[in-house]
Nucleic acid binder design. Structure first.
Length: 464
RNA sequence: GGCCCCAUCGUCUAGAGGCCUAGGACACCACCCUCUCAAGGUGGAGACACGGGUUCGAAUCCCGUUGGGGCUGCCA
């Protein structure tokens, strides 16, 4: 069943904003690796930066994961609760000579720099033998020599000697920084594979160096291509609409979201495009993850959402659709019955559930803007309305079939087409030029209400 | 600036030296179907960034150029 050994992976978001689709993809890929290998997923909240974290963002992480239909096997653990452990490892590094205290301010580092030289710390305090004290940060002593990172997705990446500065482990407040905290946790929780976004690739050699200094085994790293916007820039919580919660509210469903995200950066190697989560577990392999940045294309997401909605059973569709029209349904005594009847008719007509109110609202509450509607009427339409109203009043059984037969007869007698005849009727009945199938909508509405609406529009139109 | 990553239709991608007059999907266009709109069906337009190699043969391998991106913080 499991071709490889069980992987212990982790998903480690930092709660500094809305949970966005890039994070969703990262946890998905991690989750798939864990499931496929028979391993487990650790959820870790990287909240070492107290300044930027907010508790509501933490809740947002849990909610989004749950909504996506994913879960975790261990945790959540909070890095903010393990500060002492990170500090203890940092001091261990200090005692091993792999770290040193530094009192350089950012300004001092800048001033020492000759114009034109690249930014970064120059190692000024390396051998000053400073002890711990106020204003002193603990820096890692980066050894000479290149660092080779073996990446699951990109192969070997070499960082030349001298390209990595002596980075900070502990702030002068003794607060640990993320590279340190990450490495300590990855060791303590026995992480076997670190799968994360490509933006972390430049810090990976630092992690490798810390592992080496600690003489601990190095996990396997894999860096996923970043997700970009149409300007080809990394998706940003500030610039782009990317919050998973936004998509939920717009009426996107988790299954197509997962499906789309899975295919953004990964492909099965054949032409298959629709996958359920459990199917992804079987099909997914890291080998088939792409290398280049991928544009998060809402059009394509819409396609998956639309296809998914259409694939649902009528009952399942009604269930997911209901919350988006609940307040409308409540407006009419027969609201629930009407909703159940119309739901199958609109299932293939919407891309997102939020389109529903505008499309079927006329069944529950009718308050048309007659001025706008009249503008859409053509010369013959007013006469059509009167004829149709009269004909409909004589129907014995107000069913979809009878209505259609009746209207075809009217169209024939008026020497016009059903296509042309239905246009003014649709406006009178639904208030809009497009919408669900007209005849079934009318049957749902009932004879009296249809006649009333036809007559109302007729009156308004003929008085002008 | 430095380091790193990336490079096939507008977009997501297939392609692991001959199967490629480069395949699929989204979007787009046309036609069919049709009570509107969808859905469905058929067809169409649309890409190997450029230059050198290697090879009998390159979208596929190597080098360079160009372009894009990421990182460059006592953020993550």
């Amino acid at each position: 069943m499991h071709p490889s050994r069980p992987e212990k992976v982790r998903f480690a978001p930092s709660p500094t904003g809305f949970f966005h689709v890039g994070s969703a993809r990262t946890i998905l890929y991690n989750w798939l690796v864990a499931r496929k290998s028979g391993g487990s997923l650790l959820l870790r909240i990287d909240d070492t930066d107290a300044e930027r974290n907010r508790e509501e963002w933490v809740d947002g992480i849990y909610r989004a994961i749950q909504w996506l239909g994913l879960d975790w096997d261990e945790g959540p653990i909070r890095q903010s609760s393990r500060i002492e452990q990170y500090q203890s490892v940092a001091f261990d590094l200090l005692h091993k000579g792999a770290a040193y205290w530094c009192d350089c301010t950012r300004e001092a580092i800048e001033e020492r720099k000759a114009p034109g030289t690249p930014p970064g710390y120059d190692g000024f305090c390396r051998d000053r033998g400073l002890g711990q004290g106020p204003g002193r940060a603990l820096r890692f002593r980066v050894p000479d020599g290149p660092v080779i990172v073996s990446d699951l997705i990109r192969g070997e990446v070499t960082f030349p000697s001298g390209s990595i500065e002596d980075f900070v482990l502990l702030k002068s407040s003794l607060a640990p920084l993320y590279v340190l905290a990450n490495v300590v946790d990855d060791i303590d929780f026995a992480i076997t594979t670190v799968l994360r976004a490509e933006e972390h690739l430049p810090t990976t050699p630092k992690a490798v160096l810390i592992h080496q200094a600690l003489a601990s085994p190095i996990p396997r790293f894999g860096h996923l291509p970043v997700l970009v916007n149409e300007q080809r820039r990394k998706l940003s919580k500030r610039r782009d609409r990317v919050a998973v919660e936004d998509y939920r509210q717009l009426g996107y469903l988790p299954e197509p979201m997962i499906n789309y995200l899975a295919l953004l950066g990964w492909n099965p190697g054949d032409d298959r495009e629709f996958f359920a989560l459990d199917e992804l577990v079987h099909a997914f392999t890291l080998e088939r993850v792409g290398h280049s940045p991928a544009f998060f294309d809402e059009q394509r997401l819409l396609h998956f959402n639309k296809s998914y909605l259409a694939s649902l059973s009528p009952a399942a569709f009604a269930t997911v659709a209901h919350p988006f029209v609940a307040s409308l349904i409540a407006l009419h005594a027969e609201g629930e019955e009407r909703f159940v009847q119309i739901a199958p008719e609109v299932q293939t007509r919407i891309g997102t559930l939020s389109e529903l109110p505008a499309m079927i609202g006329f069944l529950f509450h009718f308050d048309p803007n007659y001025q706008e509607i009249v503008k859409r009427l053509r010369a013959d339409d007013i006469g059509y309305l009167a004829r149709v109203s009269a004909a409909l009043q004589d129907l014995e059984h107000f069913t979809e079939e009878e209505i259609e037969t009746c209207l075809r007869d009217v169209a024939a007698s008026l020497a016009t087409s059903l296509r042309k005849l239905q246009a003014p009727i649709r406006l009178a009945i639904t208030g809009a030029p497009v919408g669900p199938p007209l005849f079934s909508s009318m049957a749902i509405l009932g004879q009296d209400e249809c006649v009333t609406r036809l007559d109302s529009l007729y009156r308004v139109a003929s008085n002008e």
